[in-house]
Simulated scan of single mutants.
Amino acid sequence: MPLGTSPDTAPLAACDPGKNLDDACHDVESKISRTDSKASLLLAFNGAVLAGLASVADKDLPLPAQFAGGAAVLALAASAVLLLLVVRPNLGGRGRVVREGFPCWAQLSEDDLLNAMRQDTRLTRVRSLSIIAVAKFERLARAVDVILAALALLLVAAVLAVAG
């Protein structure tokens, strides 16, 4: 490929907006699925760490180690809440708006639903799903940051427990 050219040099007129919208819908749906899978794995990780911490809860540890361990447990609990919010379905209500898809369709009469099925709502779907995906990714990123902080606190607690 010569310098100064890009692989996507097709004129805009040759683009198929319908295909692009379909691709965008599938892409955002797969991103949402990926965040849910990652959140589920991290929830299992949190559970395993908390179970491990419960096994040492009856040990006589120095007070500074107990404080650091307690802070780690609180951080893990906070990350679990964030992860649960990632996998929580957005069905509308309580300030959450759903303008397209099955939560909206469930509220329509049969005639209104048939009318809705005649409309191309892919633009709305891409936008709505993208808003959901961004919120999920933000919560997932925050949860990972909190888990990392919890692991750092656990390391401090372990060092303090060994140092006595």
Rank of each mutant, 00 (worst) to 15 (best):
D36Q: 07
R127Q: 10
P11N: 05
A80L: 03
R94P: 00
S79W: 03
E138Y: 09
L50M: 10
A161K: 05
A143Y: 06
L108V: 04
A150F: 02
S79F: 13
I131T: 07
R127H: 14
A152L: 15
L155W: 13
Q119P: 01
A106Y: 02
A133E: 12
A158Q: 06
D36S: 13
G92E: 15
S109Y: 13
L129C: 04
L84R: 13
Q107S: 15
R94N: 13
K31M: 15
A141W: 14
V134S: 07
Q107G: 06
Q107W: 06
G101K: 07
G47E: 02
S33D: 14
K59H: 13
R34A: 15
L91W: 05
L82M: 07
N46L: 12
R139N: 11
G69M: 03
D120G: 07
D111N: 08
E138D: 14
G69H: 00
V73I: 12
L12E: 05
L12S: 04
M117G: 03
R139P: 01
P62N: 04
N20K: 03
T9P: 00
L148C: 11
A48Q: 08
A149T: 14
A75L: 12
S130I: 04
G52M: 05
L151G: 05
V87F: 00
A65Y: 00
V73R: 04
E110F: 01
Q119C: 06
G52H: 06
A135Q: 08
A116W: 06
V156W: 02
T121E: 01
A161P: 02
A24F: 04
T124P: 02
A116I: 01
D60M: 08
G95I: 15
L123M: 03
G52N: 08
L85N: 06
A157S: 13
K38L: 13
L155Y: 13
T121S: 04
A143G: 05
D120L: 10
L154M: 09
L43P: 01
A143Q: 11
A133H: 03
P62V: 07
A77M: 10
A54C: 08
F137A: 14
R118P: 00
